[in-house]
């Protein structure tokens, strides 16, 4: 499915969501409460078949977090980007570890570095840093006067 087709299709199914053409791929933005609905639809609809989550990350926009999911279909070779807005005060989002098993490790990393809590994750604990580490270093307001020497 081409990008235009994909955008039309997504607009049709999720009319309340913002779907635009990004630099490469269609980008679908919505709130964190709809994540499981959208993912289930994208993965299980036979003509979409987004079965491969190749990148999962987070961006700290100071007012909120944006979870960014890059999905690919190994059958049709089309991609879509999901941008899921999360609250900054209480960052919680549903885990995709049961849908895409690669998400388990990616989500642990995001939890470690951004402090986003993934609900339903089987083993959510720090992965890169030690258990005693305080704070989430990739947040924009992270300060560490001991370790970070600013240039």
């Amino acid at each position: 499915m081409g990008n235009e087709e994909l955008i039309l299709k997504l607009k049709e199914v999720f009319p309340e969501m913002d779907c635009v053409q990004g630099n490469d791929w269609p980008e679908l933005s919505f709130g964190s409460d709809r994540l499981i609905d959208v993912i289930t639809y994208l993965k299980q609809t036979p003509e979409l078949a987004f079965d491969y989550l190749f990148c999962e990350t987070c961006v700290d926009w100071k007012t909120h977090f944006n979870m960014v999911y890059h999905l690919d279909s190994t059958r049709y070779r089309h991609n879509v980007v999901l941008k899921v807005k999360t609250d900054r005060e209480k960052p919680e989002i549903a885990s995709l570890a049961h849908v895409y098993r690669t998400a388990e490790q990616h989500e642990r990393e995001i939890f470690d570095l951004f402090g986003i809590v993934f609900l339903g994750h089987p083993n959510l604990k720090r992965i890169m840093l030690t258990e005693e580490w305080v704070g989430y270093p990739l947040r924009k307001d992270y300060e560490d006067p001991i370790n970070i020497i600013k240039l």
Binding site: M128, L129, P137, D144, N147, I148, I149
Partner: peptide
């Protein structure tokens, strides 16, 4: 990794 890193031993 001397500057601007939070996890490297200098």
């Amino acid at each position: 990794f001397f500057y601007n890193t939070y996890s490297v031993v200098k």
